[in-house]
C-alpha cells in the first residue's frame, strides 16, 4: 500500500494522539457496557491498569510475543472483576461504584510499593509492539459486536434493566447474570486498552490508573451518551481532542475543558448522540 507523503507526515506527527483516540475509544466502550445495564462502575481505570501491568510484565519478564500477550491481558482484569462482582452485584445501588473506587486505590498503592511493579518509577522500556491497525481493528470489532448484540434480545434485556430492574426480572431477565456479564465484558475491553496503551508508550506508571482517569473515562460516556456504542466513542474522541485544540489557551485549557463537560451534562442529559438504536434483530 502506498501512503502519500503528506499523510505519512501527518500520521508521524500525530501518532500519539491517534493511538490515544483509539485506546480511549475502547475505554469508553468499557464504560458503556456497564452503564448500559444500569450499573455504575468506577473500576475501568483499575481494569486498564491490570491489563497494562500484566501485559508489560509478560513482555518484559516472560518475553512472550505480543500476539499471546494481547489476548492474555484480559485474564487478570477478568479475575478481579469476578472477585469484586460476586459480592457487590447482588446488591443494588452504589456498592459496585464504591468497591471499584476502592479497587483502583488499593492497586495504585500496590504498584507504588511493590518493587516487582517498578514502584513509583513504573515499568519502562516496554517495546512498542502495538500497531495502529491493531488498536483500530479492535475498536471497530468492539463497536460492531456491541451493536449486533444491542439489536437482539440481549440488548432489549439490557435496556429494560436500565429502565426498571424489577420489571425486567419479572419479564424473565436474569438480572444478576447480566450485571456480571457486563462487568466482565467491561474488564476485557479495559484490559485490552491497557495492554495496547502500555505497548505504544513504552512506559507505564501507577498514577495513570488512579481515580482521575476513572472519572475521565466516565465522562466519555456522559458526554457522548449511551444510546448506541458509537456515542461513548464520540465522547472519548471529543474529550481527547479538546485539550489539543485548546492548547492555545495554555493555562485556561483545563477550565475550558471542564466548562464544556458541565455544559454538556446540563443541556444534553442523554449525551451528544442521544438517539437510541432499534432493539430488533430481524
Amino acid at each position: 500500500m502506498i501512503i502519500p507523503p503528506w499523510l505519512d507526515d501527518f500520521l508521524w506527527t500525530y501518532q500519539n494522539l491517534i493511538h490515544a483516540l483509539g485506546i480511549n475509544g475502547l475505554l469508553a466502550l468499557s464504560m458503556y457496557v456497564v452503564l448500559a445495564v444500569g450499573q455504575l462502575s468506577l473500576g475501568q481505570a483499575a481494569f486498564m491498569g491490570l491489563g497494562a501491568y500484566s501485559s508489560a510484565l509478560m513482555t518484559l519478564k516472560l518475553k512472550l510475543p505480543f500476539f499471546m500477550v494481547l489476548p492474555a491481558s484480559c485474564v487478570v482484569p477478568v479475575l478481579f472483576a469476578l472477585a469484586i462482582g460476586v459480592p457487590t452485584l447482588r446488591l443494588s445501588g452504589v456498592y459496585l461504584a464504591i468497591a471499584t473506587i476502592g479497587l483502583g486505590e488499593v492497586l495504585r498503592a500496590v504498584y507504588l510499593n511493590v518493587d516487582y511493579f517498578g514502584g513509583a518509577l513504573g515499568l519502562s522500556g516496554i517495546p512498542e509492539r502495538a500497531e495502529t491497525w491493531m488498536i483500530y481493528g479492535l475498536l471497530f470489532a468492539a463497536v460492531a459486536i456491541l451493536w449486533l448484540v444491542g439489536r437482539s434480545g440481549v440488548g432489549r434485556a439490557m435496556e429494560a434493566m436500565r429502565e426498571d430492574e424489577t420489571a425486567a426480572g419479572v419479564m424473565g431477565v436474569n438480572v444478576g447474570r447480566y450485571r456480571m456479564g457486563a462487568l466482565l465484558a467491561s474488564a476485557v475491553l479495559a484490559g485490552l486498552a491497557g495492554a495496547l496503551g502500555a505497548h505504544v508508550s513504552s512506559f507505564i506508571g501507577p498514577n495513570e490508573y488512579g481515580f482521575e482517569p476513572a472519572v475521565t473515562i466516565l465522562s466519555y460516556a456522559l458526554l457522548g451518551g449511551i444510546g448506541t456504542p458509537l456515542a461513548p466513542v464520540l465522547g472519548a474522541w471529543i474529550l481527547t481532542l479538546l485539550p489539543e485544540l485548546l492548547r492555545g489557551f495554555s493555562d485556561l485549557r483545563l477550565v475550558f475543558n471542564g466548562v464544556i463537560i458541565v455544559l454538556a451534562v446540563l443541556f444534553l442529559p442523554n449525551g451528544l448522540l442521544s438517539w437510541r438504536m432499534k432493539r430488533r434483530g430481524a
Partner: peptide
C-alpha cells in the same frame, strides 16, 4: 412499569425474554 424509552413492540418482546435461546 413499562420501559418508557423503548418502543411498544420492544416492550412486548421483552416479555418473551425467557423463551429466547440464541447464544451470543
Amino acid at each position: 412499569r413499562v420501559f418508557g424509552a423503548m418502543t411498544v413492540l420492544e416492550n412486548v418482546l421483552t416479555g418473551l425474554h425467557a423463551h429466547l435461546s440464541a447464544t451470543l
